[in-house]
Design a protein around this nucleic acid. Sequence first.
RNA 1: GCGAAAGUGGCGGAAUUGGCAGACGCGCUGGACUUAGGAUCCAGUAGGUUCACUCCUGUAGGGGUUCGAGUCCCCUCUUUCGCACCA
Length: 833
Amino acid sequence: MELNMDYPFYDIEKKWQKIWQDREIAKGTDFSSKPKYYVLSMFPYPSGVLHIGHASNYAIGDAISRLKLMEGYNVMQPMGYDSFGMPAENYAIMHNSHPRITTEENIANMRKQFDGMGFFFDWDREVSTCRPDYYHWGQYIFKKMYENGLVYRKKSFQNWCEQCNTVLANEQVEDGACWRCGSEVIQKELEQWYFRITKYAEELLDFSDVIEWPERVMTMQKHWIGKSEGARIEFTLPDTEESIAVFTTRPDTIYGVTFMALPPEHPLVQKWLEEEPENHAMHDFCKKVINEDKVLRSSTETEKEGIFSGRYCINPLNGDKVQIWITNYVLMDYGTGAVMAVPAHDQRDFDFATKYGIPMKIVIQNPENNLHLDSMREAFIEPGIMASSAHFDGMPSEEAKSVITDWIAKNNWGEKTVTYRLRDWGISRQRYWGNPIPIIHCPKCGVVLVPDEDLPVLLPDNVQVGKTTSNPLLSVPEWLNVKCPKCGADAKRETDTMDTFVDSSWYYARYADAHNKDLPFDTEKSDFWLPVDQYIGGIEHACMHLLYARFFYKFMRDLGWVNGNEPFLRLLTQGMVLKDGAKMSKSKGNTVDPQYIVDRFGSDTLRVYLLFASPPEKDVEWNDEALMGAFRFLNRIHRLIEGNLETIKKGLQLEADTDKLSPEMKKLLFSSHSCTKKWLEDSLDRMQYNTSIAAIMEHLNHCVAIKDADNLDNDALAVYAEACGIIPQMLYPFAPHIAEELWQMMGFETLLHESGLPGYEERYLVQDTITYVVQVNGKIRGKLEMSPDSPHEILKEEALKVENVQRALDGFEVVKVIVVPSKMVSIAAKAKR
RNA sequence: GCGAAAGUGGCGGAAUUGGCAGACGCGCUGGACUUAGGAUCCAGUAGGUUCACUCCUGUAGGGGUUCGAGUCCCCUCUUUCGCACCA
């Protein structure tokens, strides 16, 4: 007897990994006549070791892929490496090596671990963003963007991380700290390259072409884009040609403007500073504010400060002379970078005006409680009735918004306009390990694109990584100095590299044609594979990667390279694996090494544990004992089938006459079909694998409950064999190795997925009797075994006869009896008087 | 401050359309077997009450709709996440 032994997971897993590889089951076939299904799990940064988060992410992708494979799709799930970027550069510095070497070593290590997990990946399509055959085409796309007016260079104050020695996009700053290293972000003035993502702002707000995205992610993106509708209005400066444009969402308050608020960075302010070098107060104030931490400055907590500029502008609607103030609370890069301040109806302006004694004017009256300037403790920001606003008086303010905007437009003072919170995407990074921007700076021709035939601009190897404080690429003269491709003059290469989010904005398309040497990808192939049917990854990418990738997709669509409007039709944001309630991290010392688990218990156990612990989008708390539960579960299955193998094989040849079954075997038959039904719904429709696995466990319990299977008669044997036989089928997406092994043991010669999905028959779900619950006034007072087609009248009668029900009705009279078909009889009663 | 989501046994979680709350697993308790094993098998496991049948309470708290509410509505609390001077 071998009952005490664990099933031989190691041999089984190695055996099937080899067979799958030889049979190329994970190969996505270009232009196959079968319907395609493109599953994509976010590619990892090659740290060299798989962590538990990867295992969890890829276990989900594997389950989806194998389910779709069983369904008969031409499934493609590729894998690659997001291998450019600061971590790789820092890792190399730490190991006193070169990122090209350490990255390739790490990739080789991870590949070994991936293979040991038995994941369903089409490795023929592997990409690694740091290899020239990939980044070549990133440069090519950059050029296409440039040619289409989506790339520009601008000097401005940037989020700068001292630790990483580079610029960060707004999305990459979290609570004033660098998203990667967590150190403080400062402001530094730099000239850098931008992608004009704002051109697509409106379209990025539209999610009508995605099939299934979490509401949360769409909301986060919508907030991030931050559309607001309002008016742009020009305030002229008397005795000059100049004017100040403001953006406001409250044109209804324009008669209440009592001052104009500008940030020190405003071009007019800069001009005044030049004109008045001796105005020390103004110079000092502007200098102080500009040098202030941008995050601190843009916090609601910060005390509002300002200085009167000594200048005035004219409110075009009423001709009022309005003081112009330079302040610390207006943002240069939102709207027009200037605010018409209406202290009576905006809290920020109210605070500022109160501090500096600037007058206020009520122009929206509260219809419920008349406002008086003397008694106002805060701004009135609600809608109300127009007042002191010339011929608009008496109009509801909500209505006045559009009426006044029309009036402004009609008089040429401004126009209706829309503003977005989304800024253009700064892609320059002052680091070595990234994709070089294919630009040459020529003293004569200016900015020149590197010609296609000279692509890729290869990243030089001989850089002293980590030894420079400025751009590392500046230290390689033989790379830096080139001839201008246009005029042949001595010129210099651009030394910024691209943000790694550029690399990951189009990798899903490269997978469709990963080895193309002439183009990023062939359109016929992208048309076949794209868009991605199911994307799986972490929620942390909601406003960065997922927004950038959508932007790139829309651009590639405009070039005619891809079809449709969205790259990812369905998105699953998987939860994190936690330990002791916290995210696993080396610094906290609460990590779990998936390789250790695989070595000890096998990949199948790890996957079943991760998938069973909670629904995919929720976090999972790591629990060693629950992991053992998963291992025991697989052992139980193995024991059931191996221990009854001959019986099962014999039974599989038989056909059951289901009318002749014992009640016990009828129950088992019902379990086979009802559990399969639940499994199908939970696996395919709901993608809730924890309950799919629960259905298998439940069914397994029913199978194990049949003792002495070899003594069953032929009808029972057939039912028993079928019941055992569907277990490997249902197990396949979650524990594919053991499933294949058991399937083969039972004598099937095909690979498991080739048999298709397990099915169920409705006729076996019909039971002779149903347990009806009988309620009296909402409380359960009895049960009733009745046939499912019993007439309602009979059910009511029988329900009232139940002893316990009668007792509950003592002293009550029945008001109403309700029958819920196949479920219950509910009796409403009230006390007799 | 604004916005969103969530709150169910000792734990992870289930309950899909308002219809037997706690499926399934972990842990725990008792028993069987023994080759003494992160084994296996059987029984139990929300709380209270009872010898038992029964009964009562129970899905963060309070109120409401309904024959019937974990599920729908209103209020409060807590937690998590996102945004945060965006004019």
